[in-house]
Amino acid sequence: MTTVDMARKARFEAIWAEHSVKVRAYCMRRVASHDADDVAAEIFLVVWRRIDEIPPAPKTLLYIYGIAGKVVSNHTRSFRRRSRLDEKLRNLGVAPPVDPAFLVVQSSDDVDVAAAVRNLRPKDREIVMLYAWDDLPRDDIATIMGMTRSAVDQRIHRSYQRLARALAPLIKPIPSPPVAEEGAT
């Protein structure tokens, strides 16, 4: 291995050490957990190939998220094909494997909310996930998505309105406090 190769490998290992947990978390929030590690590996494979083009901090992680979005999107297309196979298996009485990603969700309401988020349009869904689940600042989301900050604001606003309409049945009215009867002590 040449000196240049060693330097590239050292940089890759540094990026891995710093960002692999976040990238793995990104994958686990978007794909079934049994696939998350493979998708994360695929993302880092692309990082390795593009190691000379990866910008320095603080842009490094944003650039990797950009790669991750494409890899996950590609994986999701494959997953949809597999889902159609799952459907056929179901019709034959064979249960497809449960998506373990949902097992960590704590309540049925949360499952419904997560499902509503996943039903958003692809770009809107990614923006909402980056904002609310990956906890990224809106300016960073704008950089990752190649949009203006105001466009990101609009998308979040519109997506939350859609979610509000979709989730309205989940909202339970708060019971009124009992009113003390007049003269009661």
Binding site: A25, V104, V105, V113, A132, W133, Y160
Partner: peptide, 15 residues
């Protein structure tokens, strides 16, 4: 309210 619901539904809230 929506923001709180979405954040609470994060499948992996804590790294």
């Amino acid at each position: 309210q929506i923001d709180r619901m979405v954040r609470r539904a994060n499948p992996l809230p804590d790294l």
